Simulated scan of single mutants.
Amino acid sequence: MRVALFIDGSYMYDAAKRLGWNIDHRKAIGVFAKPEDLYNAFYYAPVTDANDERQQKFLDALVFMGYTVRSRETHGDPHFEAMIATDLLVTAPRWDRAVLASGSGDLSHTLAALRAQGKEVYLLGVPELTDLELRNQSDRFLDLRELQSSLERTGGGRRTYPNLSEGAAPQENPEESSPASRLMNNLEDEI
């Protein structure tokens, strides 16, 4: 069975925040498909500053992990529903099951169309962050809480080192204001 993975990065960030643990994106690919069964894994990531080297490193790391990264510069709340819907419909002939990590009800009609074509659609997420109609249109809802042991990122994280030549303590990064900025800063921790 050919499997495709579609991950809305902003949604996964909100879900991880709600759950209190971070998702290991490297593990996520292997949890849902054997390498020989994976058609593709798409990751939708907002870019808050095209010149930010940290964001570019994170996007590069996702590509290295095996994702096809769909990103665009955004200010404020990112909305990738049209891009996700297009990718789901255009690639449908190449997979049998899609695993979608999103909570947007705007994708409900896309899921209904895919199921009418005989495609299986599994929805990955957190119930309270997922539109009820979207859940209704999926074949199966996969609650992230039940997958913690398989998907949680352990160890690692952002490391800061003091400047020993000046004896200065590490400085904390200032809090970013937009959700997209917070997402990219959190995801950069995973590199």
Rank of each mutant, 00 (worst) to 15 (best):
T68H: 13
K34N: 09
D106M: 10
E81Y: 00
T86A: 13
R54Y: 00
P127E: 11
G125R: 00
L129Y: 04
G20Y: 08
P46N: 03
V90A: 09
V99S: 08
G20A: 04
A4W: 04
A4I: 04
V69L: 02
R135M: 14
I23F: 04
L187A: 07
L100P: 06
L111H: 06
V126S: 04
G157N: 02
Q56D: 07
S177D: 14
D139V: 01
L187Y: 15
A169H: 11
N51D: 14
H79Q: 12
P179S: 05
R135E: 10
L132E: 15
A113F: 03
V90M: 07
L62M: 13
Q55L: 01
E188R: 15
M12R: 02
D131P: 01
A41T: 07
R153A: 13
E133I: 09
M83S: 12
T74K: 12
I23L: 14
K119S: 03
E53I: 13
V31L: 15
L88Y: 04
A15P: 00
S71D: 10
N136D: 14
S104W: 00
L183D: 01
R72D: 01
K34E: 13
N22T: 14
R145A: 12
R70E: 12
A41C: 08
H25L: 14
M65W: 11
K34F: 00
A92V: 07
H79G: 09
F42L: 09
R158L: 15
D77C: 03
K27A: 05
L19G: 13
G66F: 01
D143V: 05
H79D: 15
E81Q: 09
H75T: 13
N51S: 14
K34P: 00
N136I: 09
